[in-house]
Each structure stands twice: as C-alpha cells, then as structure tokens.
Amino acid sequence: MPDLPDPVNLAVPAFISLVLLEMLVARIRGRHRYDPKDTLTSLALGLGSTIAGVLSAGAVIGMAWWFWNHRVFDIPYVWWAWGLCFVLDDLAYYAFHRSAHRVRWFWASHVIHHSSQHYNLSTALRQTWTGFLSLAFIFRLPLFLIGFPPAMVLFCGGINLIYQFWIHTEMIGRMPRWFEAVMNTPSHHRVHHATNPRYLDKNYAGVFIVWDRMFGSFVREHDDDRPRYGIVKNLGSYNVLWAAFHEWAGIAKDVWKAPGIGNKLRYIIAPPGWSHDGSRDSSETIRARWHARLQHDG
C-alpha cells in the first residue's frame, strides 16, 4: 500500500501565493473584489475547518476502514482504479453537494462556504467547522464499500478540493468551449455561488460539470445577469463564530418553536427556507416569483 501524502497540505503554499496574486490584480483591476474584514473571516474559517478536520479525522478514517473491510471488490492501486476512483469520488461529491443545498441539516454545515458576499480565492478557503456533525462524510462511504482503498479515495478527494480552489475567482471569464462543456470552471461556479433567482441552487459540480448537465441542475452564466454572491439572507456580520454556527442556531430555534413533530422534523431535513406557515422564501419561491415577473414584464 503506497504511503500517500495529503495533497491539500502540499497545496497550501500555492493557495497563499495565488491569493496574494489575486489581491495584487484586484489592486489594479477592482479593489471592490476584496474586503480585508471579509478575507480575514474567510481565512479564519478555513483555519478552523482544518483544525476541525484534524479532530474528526480519526473517526472518519475509522469508518472508512470499517466499510472497506466489508468491501465487495478488491481494487488494486493501478492506473484504471485511480481514474475510476477520481470520477466516482466526484460523483459522490456531486451527491453530497446537492444534498448540502437541499437538506437543511447538511446546509447548516455548508452555508459557511456561501456566506461571503465576495467571490475570490479567499472564499475558496472559507470552509465549514461542522462537517463531521452534519455527517457529510457518509457520501463517500459507498466508495469504500465498493472496494476503493481509503487512502486512494482520500487522495482523490484532496485533488478534487485542490481543483476547486482556482474556480473561486472573477478574474477569469470563460474557458474554451470544450473545457466549459466538461469541467467545472470559474464561470460555472460563479453561478453556483450566486443568489440571483436564475442561479439559485444550480451547478453543484466539483470537478466535472457533466453531472449537472446529466441531472438537470446546470445553468450557464448570463452576461446580462451578473452574479450577486452570498446567501438569500446575508449575514451582515464578519463574526467568525456567527458565520460558523448561525444556521445551526436557526435550526434549533425553529425546531423549538415548530408545532408538531412533523414540522419539527421538516425544519431539519426540508430544503433551506421551508417553513410550516409558508412565511419564508425558498429557492423555489424566489425563482417562481422571478418567472412570474418576467412573464408580466415580458
């Protein structure tokens, strides 16, 4: 079994260098692209995420090994296994990511990443502290059960994360058409981070945008509808702890107040924005209102 490094750790110097480079470009091309307070919040969340990951690594790896010890196939460390593992891991990421936007329990962990109203490389590092609490790791467990060695899966996952770093920028417009057709790109991911009604809950891809095209969640970026970033109800605060836990606090408050067990459960697992009395906006209601307005105006 090969001794594989953690690719994300190795990429950290590159992350820092590219953030610095983007800041320098922003100094020339648009100072509004960064906000020092927002950058500090994003990076602090990223650091906290790394710490949280270290603290929960033992449990996650233990589970990975348990599932792998009950594997269906014996998959060796050969070239085709690496390729297949990477693709299937990306599919698992798509499944996780789509759930992270459509199930409030998973959203409570993922919302941190979307809570900046800026879109730059520091946003890429704005990561969750509560990934283990939300059980996000369960989407990878089938890969271990199939027979992919845990070290292989985790390495592929690391490469997947590294790929997603560079797409968090407005400095790159569109890639060549063939690339945009297959891969996740800055353009596709700007759509994903946007709260414009057209773009809400779209483009869940990690590396390959083909999953969104296959499963009906793809929307292209429109030049006449520039992305506005953040979440539907933006925080209005740079507080790191509030950014990390605000949605968990929201779930607790809603569950406490909700009438009936059914509603209490729905406040945990229904899509973000669901309410028992219809008083809140979900991505569906926002988009429906937008469509109605287009038809009225059109």
Binding site: R27, R31, Y34, K37, T39, L40, S122
Partner: peptide, 16 residues
Amino acid sequence: GVLGLALVARLLGLGE
C-alpha cells in the same frame, strides 16, 4: 498566514 494575508489586503487598500 491568515493574519498576514488580511493585513496585505488592508495595506493594498482593498475593499470599498
């Protein structure tokens, strides 16, 4: 690194 990058953002006069 975190504090340093935030400081660089401030020194570059980024933000509006």
